[in-house]
Simulated assay, not measured.
Amino acid sequence: MSGTAPGSTPKHRLNPGKLLLSKWTAAQPQNREKHFLVSQLFCDEQGQVLQVELQAVLSRRCQRLDWRALEDAMTWHLGWK
């Protein structure tokens, strides 16, 4: 059993506090940007991680997104593949 309900999107179990400098691979690369590094965490006043900044290794372009978006295994793969 995979632990994922039928018809639902598979998810990674992540600890948002350990995302800084983690490596990610885009499942569907765009503009040849496939590998990314979490370069910054954005937190609220209580220190809870809200968003991350992903930096493309190839172009150094940065994008900011909700850290929970990385839990979607159909969009992001943990590590560089």
Rank of each mutant, 00 (worst) to 15 (best):
M1G: 15
G3W: 03
G3D: 01
G3L: 07
T4K: 12
T4S: 13
T4D: 14
P6K: 01
G7A: 03
G7M: 04
G7I: 04
G7S: 03
G7R: 04
T9S: 07
P10E: 00
K11R: 12
H12A: 13
R13C: 12
R13F: 11
R13S: 15
L14W: 10
N15I: 14
P16I: 13
G17M: 08
G17E: 15
K18F: 00
L19Y: 03
L19M: 04
L20I: 08
L21R: 10
L21M: 11
K23N: 12
W24H: 02
W24E: 08
T25Y: 05
A26W: 00
A27E: 11
A27F: 00
A27G: 07
A27R: 15
Q28N: 10
Q28R: 14
Q28D: 13
Q28F: 08
P29C: 03
P29Y: 04
N31D: 03
R32W: 09
E33D: 07
K34E: 12
K34Q: 14
K34P: 06
K34D: 13
H35R: 15
H35F: 09
F36H: 07
F36P: 09
L37V: 15
L37E: 15
L37T: 14
L37Y: 13
V38H: 03
V38R: 01
V38P: 05
S39V: 12
S39R: 07
Q40L: 05
Q40D: 03
Q40M: 10
Q40G: 03
Q40R: 06
Q40T: 07
L41S: 04
F42D: 06
F42S: 02
C43Q: 05
C43S: 09
D44P: 08
D44L: 09
E45S: 15
E45G: 09
Q46C: 07
Q46A: 15
G47A: 07
G47N: 06
Q48W: 02
Q48C: 09
Q48I: 13
V49R: 02
V49Y: 03
L50F: 00
L50C: 08
L50I: 10
L50W: 01
Q51L: 06
Q51P: 05
V52I: 02
E53H: 01
Q55W: 05
A56I: 04
V57Y: 06
V57G: 02
V57M: 04
L58P: 00
L58S: 02
S59N: 01
S59I: 08
R60S: 14
R60T: 11
R61S: 11
R61P: 09
R61G: 05
R61V: 08
C62M: 06
C62W: 04
Q63R: 03
Q63A: 11
R64T: 08
R64V: 11
L65E: 10
L65V: 07
W67F: 09
W67P: 02
R68M: 12
R68N: 10
R68D: 13
R68I: 10
A69H: 05
A69W: 06
A69L: 11
L70A: 07
E71V: 01
E71P: 02
E71Y: 11
D72G: 04
A73I: 00
A73N: 10
M74C: 11
M74W: 00
M74P: 00
M74G: 10
M74Y: 01
T75L: 15
T75S: 15
W76T: 13
W76L: 13
W76E: 13
H77W: 09
L78N: 06
L78M: 13
G79M: 00
G79R: 00
G79N: 12
G79V: 14
W80H: 15
K81H: 14
